[in-house]
Amino acid sequence: MSLATALAGFVVDASLGSWLGAMAFFSFVAAPTTFRVLDDDAGRVVNAIFPTYYVVGVALGALAVVAWAALGALSAAPSLGVPAMALVGVLCHAYARWALVPKMEAAGDDAFATYHKQSVGLNGVAILAVTLALLAAQF
């Protein structure tokens, strides 16, 4: 295995692993703790974090796809499972950032429950997709 191949594989694993870790931490630790500690003021904190959270996901997913393409160019053609699943996650985060967040901001508190359900669903799909991409990258 060449150094370039090893580096490309490392970038794929690191970007997908970082993305999965960030999603898990925010979803299961940071957001629930913020709501428990700050109560009604937590929404402002979480709403301030969400746009960056989604952009970071898009960037890490794009980095994984580019590194996977480089890996394919450097070695035998790898499976399409990794970029396909990473792109599912990217699409979930991109839609949430550039379509759902503006809708939530425009609707205010009235439609929070509806948009929150959509956000949780998209996040769940992204977590599953990135998990599958990371697993596929190991084979």
Score class of each variant (00 low, 15 high):
A4G: 05
T5L: 13
T5P: 00
T5R: 07
A6D: 09
A6G: 08
L7N: 06
G9L: 12
G9T: 10
F10D: 05
V12A: 08
A14C: 05
G17I: 04
G17Y: 01
S18T: 10
L20V: 12
A22L: 15
A22Y: 07
A24Y: 07
A24I: 14
F25A: 12
F26Q: 02
S27V: 04
S27H: 07
F28Y: 12
A31H: 00
P32Q: 07
T33L: 14
T33M: 13
T34S: 09
T34Y: 01
R36A: 15
V37I: 14
D39I: 07
D39F: 11
D39E: 15
D40C: 03
D40M: 03
D41Q: 14
D41K: 15
A42T: 09
R44K: 14
V45E: 07
V46Y: 05
V46T: 08
N47Q: 08
I49V: 15
F50G: 03
F50E: 02
P51K: 02
T52L: 10
T52Y: 10
T52A: 12
Y53I: 04
Y53L: 08
V55E: 08
V56H: 06
V56K: 02
V56I: 15
G57L: 09
A59N: 00
L60K: 03
G61Q: 04
G61L: 02
G61S: 09
A64K: 01
A64E: 03
V66I: 15
V66T: 12
A67Q: 03
A69C: 08
A69K: 01
A70I: 11
L71E: 12
L71F: 10
G72P: 08
G72I: 13
G72K: 09
G72M: 13
A73Q: 09
A73L: 15
L74S: 06
A76D: 15
A76E: 15
L80N: 02
G81H: 11
V82S: 06
P83F: 12
L87D: 09
V90N: 01
L91V: 15
H93A: 13
H93F: 10
A94I: 06
Y95M: 03
A96S: 11
R97P: 02
R97C: 12
R97I: 02
W98D: 11
W98R: 04
L100C: 10
V101S: 02
P102G: 12
K103G: 04
K103R: 13
M104L: 10
E105G: 00
A106N: 02
A106C: 06
A107C: 10
D109S: 11
D109G: 09
A111F: 06
F112S: 05
Y115F: 15
H116R: 05
H116L: 09
S119T: 04
S119G: 06
V120Q: 05
G121W: 01
G121V: 05
L122Q: 03
L122I: 06
L122P: 02
L122H: 07
G124W: 11
A126G: 04
A126K: 01
I127Y: 00
I127M: 11
A129D: 08
A129L: 08
T131M: 11
A136L: 15
A136W: 13
Q138N: 14
F139D: 06
